[in-house]
Simulated assay, not measured.
Amino acid sequence: MPSILTLVFLLIGGIAGGLLSSVASMASLASYPVLLAVGIPPVYANVTNDAALIWTGIGSTISSLKELKGHWKQVAFYGTFTVIGSLVGCHLLLAFPSAVFEKVVPFFIAGSGIMVIVSAKHHSLEPHKRPLWQELLSIAALLFMGVYTGYFGAAAGVIVIVLLTYVTDEKFIVVNAIKNVICGLANLVALIVFAFTSHIYWIQAIPLAIGMFIGGYFGMDILRVVPAKYVRIFIAVLAFLQAGYFFYKAYML
């Protein structure tokens, strides 16, 4: 049984992760190292992190009901394809190691960080009806995003933000709210799969999840008062930092 100090440490780490998730889609920058610090092996820390991440999505969804009003059909549409992709990604992870994919991930994340900044120009355009080929491409991208979330997951929320920016004409705070819901659904699918195929440290996951719920809930309040351009810069900086970490891990160790 973990000590009280360990549980408090996990709670604080969860709050930090929840804030980072709802604001910058980078919960694992805080939550994953916390799980490693309390002695959970890396593979199981990743699975336990998924178990707690769901509560970030729940907290941010409750907090962003105002932004989600009138957008639930979009959430259901995007979420359906992301969940299907996540199921595929989970099964791929169980069947094949992710070592080769890890070589590509740093560049994938860095590219997403750049696109977060560049995609801001998209919303300076007037809303318009997209041709059929763009809609089909969007569906394919959502499926791929789900596969990525289930298979690897690093900075998945950032990539979803970029994708939704291009497939919708919504404000950034609405895009972020939709992202929180569909990423939460993808994480839920991953948890269900891994609960039967791996080992989750539930005692450590509970305080982490409580913290993530708190952080996810209050993170939306931050987004309402901070200009979107500064949030985009913050997300991009964190994406570059995470890309650097995975580059070091894949090529330097």
Rank of each mutant, 00 (worst) to 15 (best):
P2H: 14
S3Q: 14
I4C: 11
I4D: 09
L5V: 15
T6F: 04
V8M: 12
L11G: 03
L11S: 00
L11Q: 04
I12T: 01
A16K: 06
G17R: 00
G18K: 00
L19I: 13
L19V: 00
S21V: 02
S22G: 01
V23H: 02
A24S: 12
S25D: 13
M26W: 02
A27H: 01
S31F: 11
P33C: 06
V34Q: 04
L36R: 03
V38S: 01
V38H: 01
P42A: 07
A45K: 12
V47G: 05
D50V: 10
A51W: 11
A52K: 04
I58V: 15
S63Y: 13
L68Y: 07
K69M: 09
H71E: 03
H71S: 03
W72M: 13
W72P: 09
Q74L: 11
A76H: 11
A76P: 09
T80K: 06
C90N: 04
H91G: 10
L92Q: 11
L93R: 03
A99C: 13
V104W: 15
P106N: 03
G111Y: 10
G111A: 14
G111S: 08
G113M: 10
I114N: 01
M115C: 09
V116W: 03
I117Y: 05
V118A: 02
V118K: 03
S119E: 10
A120T: 11
A120G: 08
H122L: 15
H122S: 14
P127S: 09
P127L: 09
H128C: 12
P131G: 02
P131F: 02
W133K: 00
L136S: 10
L137I: 08
V147S: 03
G153V: 07
A155S: 08
A155I: 10
A155F: 06
G157Q: 00
G157N: 07
G157M: 09
G157I: 14
V160T: 00
V160N: 02
I161M: 15
L164H: 05
T168M: 00
F172N: 10
V175I: 05
V181Q: 01
V181P: 14
L185W: 03
A186Q: 02
N187C: 10
N187S: 04
A190T: 06
F194D: 14
A195V: 12
F196W: 13
H199R: 12
I200N: 02
W202D: 10
I203L: 15
I203N: 10
I203G: 04
Q204S: 09
A205P: 13
I206M: 14
P207R: 05
F213M: 11
I214L: 08
G215L: 00
G216V: 10
F218N: 07
M220F: 03
D221E: 15
D221L: 11
D221M: 14
L223S: 08
R224W: 12
R224I: 09
V225T: 13
V225S: 10
P227D: 07
K229F: 00
K229M: 13
K229R: 15
F234I: 12
A236C: 02
V237K: 06
Q242K: 14
A243Y: 09
F247T: 07
Y248H: 07
L253D: 14
